[in-house]
Design a protein around this nucleic acid. Structure first.
Lengths: 284, 284
DNA sequence: CGCGAGATTGACTCGGGTCAATAGTAGTGG
DNA sequence: CCACTACTATTGACCCGAGTCAATCTCGCG
């Protein structure tokens, strides 16, 4: 329960990133962060000039299942994940959820509310979470004084945009196996960036949520994980995933999408011929 | 040819939006725009306070097929489309294109370059274009003085983010027909917003590009358009599209994605039973 | 200890991708 | 002005990846 680091808490207690006390859990502990800590958390190179101490940002805790914001709710604050795991979702006209992202430490929430002044998505805590509040008004007001803050915002929003672009590319062009493979790699990388093991971790979300995120059904996700397991690329035990062959996961393709191929496509037929069932990996 | 308004240039010569001379083509005409014009173009409510005239932004022209920026190129400027049509694409490891967007008048380009200081996508002119340059340095420098500019940036970036979110939702959950239908509706709306006809227009892109954008093959796009045509929802003649039943297009679903369904799904089975071939529309 | 949500697996179906043939269109140059 | 060529679009035949339906199985939790 409560937002544990993703199993294998090897170096979880000695965060590699910065100040020696933000990774821990201290539920009611530190309730405020200064600008430098926020920038560090966001992994933004901030030339934190001055006055780091007088602008403080409040923390809030959310318990598993709680919603941070909902669709249509009036927008007034951004959130930065200090610890814990969440999902953001769109809800269609039938009430079906479409998962958009799985924010975790260092990610920003709520950016989609700026435009219309109403959140465009819903954020739900998948574990107990500790979030930092960034009141948007305050933030823009401070933008002129501390323009590193402004740059931080641009950087974070641009980063998020690139992430979504990559997502679109994935959904538009990759096979089910490739999506699942990249999803695992992406998770591993993010865990590594947080100082956790990238070789063994727990999924925070259900197969259903993964499927929604990847544009697949939960059955396909489950089957694909099982297939990877049999091949020996990973180990699967419920939500515990062990990465055995990260390189293969990264390069796995199958179905080189002749769709969207321009005149520049070439060698990609090499994967089709020997596609028995012994080798599902791209050998490139 | 050259970036004409999308056929049916009914009111093309009397732009509904602002100063009486930006919609036209005047290739070498106006080469600079002030802040107010930029804000108007972006459809951002800007309380253009003062000094509207001393900060001017240069225009540049691109001819059909030219690239505005390429992937990996050093980032230093944002672009706003004043006229013309473009596509932005990702290029995968095989050289395959994945279309991300079809920017047109009022859209901003290059935002994905802010984060890493290198453009993450490639922008190509689908017609002759007139773009406004926003040197990023200049822009952030001015951000402190004219903070409506800063808000404009936040607004535009957030809007783009929401657009991509919607795209992800579409790719993840909708059937081929629904994607094509929404694509047409979206185009119609954008043309309407520019003052053109939303009932009859020319596609600026090939079936292949549409397919890439929607995560489909060009054959499926072509077939789907033909099917819509037969049903009488639209007329199709090569790249000329006539919208006959916008309402049906908007509500078309098919394949209510039981995937990603939560406990909230309900009536959506009504579309499955009578799914002969006479009625493909959602009756809701 | 039993319940219910989540995960796994199998059998079957079909939407849409693949391959391929044809036709319409535009740009180019003689 | 027209033929030539290359690109684009349309259509058909076929088939496979992934969705659907459904039956267990597992595990965490009350």
């Amino acid at each position: 329960m409560q937002s544990q680091p993703p199993s294998e808490p090897r170096n979880a207690n000695q965060p590699t990133l910065h100040s020696p006390m933000e990774a821990g859990r201290q539920r009611q502990g530190r309730l405020w962060s200064n600008l430098k800590e926020v920038c560090d958390l966001l992994r933004i190179q901030a030339s934190v000039s001055v006055s780091s101490e007088e602008l403080l940002f409040q923390h809030v805790q959310f318990k598993t299942g709680q919603r941070v914001h909902t669709i249509g709710q009036a927008f007034d604050t951004l959130y930065i994940v200090n610890s814990g795991f969440l999902k953001t979702v769109l809800i269609d006209e039938f009430g079906n959820e479409q998962v958009l992202s799985f924010p975790m430490k260092g990610d920003m929430l709520g950016v989609d509310g700026i435009h219309t002044r109403h959140y465009a998505s819903e954020a739900v805590a998948l574990s107990d979470c500790d979030l930092i509040l960034l009141p948007f008004k305050k933030l823009t007001a401070l933008g002129r004084v501390h323009n590193e803050l402004e740059n931080m915002m641009y950087g974070v929003m641009s980063r998020e945009l690139v992430r979504e672009q990559t997502m679109i590319g994935m959904l538009g062009a990759l096979s089910a196996e490739a999506r699942v493979a990249r999803f695992l790699v992406s998770l591993a990388d993010r865990f590594a960036a947080m100082g956790y093991s990238s070789k063994l971790f727990n999924l925070r979300m259900t197969r259903h949520e993964i499927g929604s995120y990847l544009g697949l059904t939960l059955e396909t996700v489950s089957r694909t994980l099982s297939a990877f397991n049999e091949i020996g690329m990973i180990t699967v035990d419920q939500r515990t995933i062990g990465i055995k062959d990260a390189e293969s996961l990264k390069t796995l393709r199958r179905l080189p999408p002749s769709r969207s191929r321009t005149k520049a496509s070439a060698k990609q037929k090499a994967e089709l011929d020997q596609s028995g069932d012994d080798q599902v990996l791209a050998t490139a």
